[in-house]
Simulated assay, not measured.
Amino acid sequence: MQAEPAAAARAMPHARVALLTAVTMLAFAGNSILCRLALKGTAIDAASFTLARVASAAAALWLILLVRQGPRRLAGGGSWPSALALFAYAAAFSYAYLHLSAGTGALLLFGAVQATMTGYGLYVGERLRAWQWLGLALALGGLAWLVLPGLAAPPPGSSLLMIVAGIAWGIYSLRGRGAADAVATTAGNFARAVPPALALALLMHAQRSLDGAGLACALVSGALTSGLGYVVWYAVVPQLRAATAATVQLSVPVIAAAGGLALLGEAMSLRLAVSAAAVLGGIALVIAGKQR
């Protein structure tokens, strides 16, 4: 997720902040569940899912901007480098979920995002305390344990794709820090991501397979759990302390795993449970150090 917009927001009641935060985490976890549901249980192909998700998110965000600002105040936001990072995330995310469970994919994605952003912080001179280094080592060890070869290991190709998706999303988030209008910036980036998504769909034309249920999942993932989800997140995140905003995101892989169990009939392996505890616990240590 991108950092909060620079402009301060009006204070919200605490109950409303808590409710909107919970809704946003459910939306972000819903992206994993919807993608896995579509690619496992329907006939839609990954390229078509990506195109439908990106295009519907762009349309929803621009409609929100139109209602909020009016046609005369609409202006293009975002940039092509950010849009390409967004497209790389969306495409790798879709193809990874051809063979990953919802919980495993969400954990790999979240770990790769946090590793990318923490690595960038170290590159620009941020210092970690001893327990933060311990947390980073624990999180990376958990990811390594998850993908080690074995009967319970996820497919290596799909795991690599999800790690690539996490790195791309981390880059996208870093580029979006301090945006004056995060919604307009995100709308512009999604709009710019449509042409490469269309190019991918045309390139993979031979494998194209459309399905009504799969298309519905992609449209919901784009317009609601992505587009509207980001709008709600940008509204609520200025109300949260930075460490709190980072901490609540630890719930996303857990919600995705629970959704996979309840809705998709996926199993919770011991390897996934141990890896999740290590990754999320390690990241929590890093976040706690930043808070101090």
Rank of each mutant, 00 (worst) to 15 (best):
L98C: 03
A96F: 01
A58L: 06
A180P: 08
A153V: 10
M1Q: 02
V252K: 11
S209H: 15
S251H: 02
G77P: 06
L240Q: 03
Y234C: 03
G166A: 11
S269K: 09
A242P: 07
A59N: 08
L160R: 01
L143R: 00
G214W: 04
F110A: 10
A88T: 12
V194S: 00
G111Y: 04
I44A: 00
S159E: 00
P156C: 10
S269A: 11
L66T: 15
V67R: 08
P196L: 02
Q239S: 12
Y234K: 01
L215K: 01
Q207M: 02
V67C: 13
V67F: 15
P253V: 04
F110D: 14
I33T: 05
V194R: 00
A284V: 10
A199G: 07
K40Y: 07
L228P: 08
M25N: 08
S269E: 11
G30S: 07
F93D: 07
L160P: 08
I64H: 10
Q207H: 07
P149R: 12
L160G: 14
T24I: 01
S56P: 06
S173G: 15
M12T: 06
A165R: 06
A245G: 15
L140F: 04
V248I: 15
V237W: 03
D181C: 12
K40M: 12
L219Y: 05
L74P: 04
V274G: 08
L122C: 14
W62Y: 14
A182R: 10
L63M: 14
A137H: 09
F28A: 07
R53D: 08
P195K: 13
A191G: 07
G125E: 03
R16P: 00
T50N: 03
A115E: 00
F28Y: 13
K40F: 08
A197Q: 01
G188Y: 06
V147Y: 10
L98N: 12
R53W: 14
A57V: 11
G103V: 09
S82P: 06
A193K: 00
P156K: 01
V279E: 02
I44W: 00
R127A: 10
F93T: 11
R73T: 02
V124I: 15
F49M: 12
A184L: 15
M25C: 08
G103E: 04
R129D: 14
G41T: 10
R127G: 02
V124D: 10
W80N: 06
A112L: 03
Q69N: 09
A256D: 13
A7W: 01
C217E: 13
L37G: 07
L134W: 12
A22C: 09
H99A: 15
L198G: 09
S79F: 06
G141L: 14
S251E: 01
R10A: 14
A152S: 14
I255E: 06
A130M: 07
A218V: 12
L61F: 08
L240W: 05
L198F: 12
A9E: 10
M162W: 04
N189F: 03
G111C: 14
A187R: 05
R175Y: 12
A75V: 05
V248G: 06
I287H: 03
P195D: 02
V183P: 05
A288N: 04
G212C: 00
F28E: 14
A83V: 05
L39K: 00
I64R: 00
A47I: 07
S82C: 10
Y95L: 04
C217N: 14
L261D: 00
G214K: 02
G281K: 00
A273L: 09
V194L: 03
L250M: 12
S82V: 05
R192W: 13
Q69S: 11
